[in-house]
């Protein structure tokens, strides 16, 4: 099926709204990874996080491009100028973090979820979208490998285990909104085959995979929270102040010159 000729306008709007959330996930997570540049635990890890950040920005670009074409916007505006309340990313990826264990915990939780969601798009029947999702998915195995390596190594010392357990306890409840897309909109996409599976139906699979992988950690409460109602639903535009701070950080005050990011309105100026 082709998006432009076979889908009606309402459905294209729903597809664009869905992909905007996927793109926001990648953009925000890519930015958080980039914050490690020059601060990584080792030079090798610094380079690796920067490379993963670039992967995420590349994936964000794939989906923002489609959305920009559809809504008549451009990449800079979609990626840089939208304020926190306009964003649809999961609150999992927006958290500020100074502990490397947070990065490992979020990377793992996010990657396990994104793999499922991208498969739902890649196995859908709209070629323009499934090809983009398959392309993004093909780079994810490395991110998973990176997460697995560190999950297995940070537990080598008591301190590492404690800090990783704390980081996972924080990350898991915030992942509760990952699959929490508006049911009516996604049902329409599933009925027409744009998505092979409804995001809500992928959630049990994610919970099972995460519970199995993290079985050695005392995370019962955090896993319950991850399976429950989200405290904040990023898919509905609910976000923490940390996202405002991150976006404001992209737009320093006193910015001079003609640049597309000038259209942004800082949170502290609103």
């Amino acid at each position: 099926m082709s998006l432009t000729t076979d889908l009606d306008a309402d459905l294209r709007d729903s597809a664009a709204a869905f992909l905007l959330a996927v793109a926001d996930d990648d953009f925000v997570w890519g930015h958080r990874l980039s914050e490690w540049v020059a601060l990584g635990p080792t030079m090798e890890e610094d380079n690796t996080l920067a490379a993963m950040s670039q992967d995420e920005f590349g994936h964000a670009r794939l989906f923002y491009e489609y959305v920009a074409d559809h809504v008549g916007s451009d990449l800079d505006h979609l990626a840089l100028n939208r304020r926190a309340e306009e964003r649809r990313n999961t609150t999992l990826v927006e958290a500020d973090h100074a502990d490397f264990a947070d990065t490992v915990a979020i990377n793992y939780c996010y990657d396990e979820a994104e793999r499922l969601l991208l498969s739902a798009v890649a196995d859908g029947n709209v070629e323009e979208l499934s090809a983009r999702a398959a392309q993004a998915r093909s780079e994810e195995p490395f991110h998973r490998e990176h997460a697995d390596r560190w999950l297995d190594r940070l537990v080598a010392t008591d301190e590492g285990r404690e800090r990783l357990t704390r980081a996972l306890s924080d990350a898991l409840p915030r992942a509760a909104d990952y699959f929490a897309f508006e049911d009516a909109a996604t049902a329409e996409l599933v009925d027409t085959g744009v998505l092979a599976t409804a995001p809500a139906d992928l959630r049990p699979e994610w919970i099972e995979a995460v519970s199995e992988r993290l079985v050695e950690f005392p995370l019962e409460d955090a896993l319950d929270a991850a399976a429950g109602e989200p405290a904040l639903n990023g898919r509905a535009g609910e976000h923490t102040d940390e996202l405002d701070a991150m976006l404001d950080g992209l737009h320093p005050e006193g910015h001079v010159g003609d640049h597309p990011i000038q259209d942004y309105q800082r949170a502290d100026a609103r």
Partner: peptide
């Protein structure tokens, strides 16, 4: 080392 080498 192999994981890090891949992205370095």
């Amino acid at each position: 080392a192999l994981t890090l080498a891949k992205r370095n």
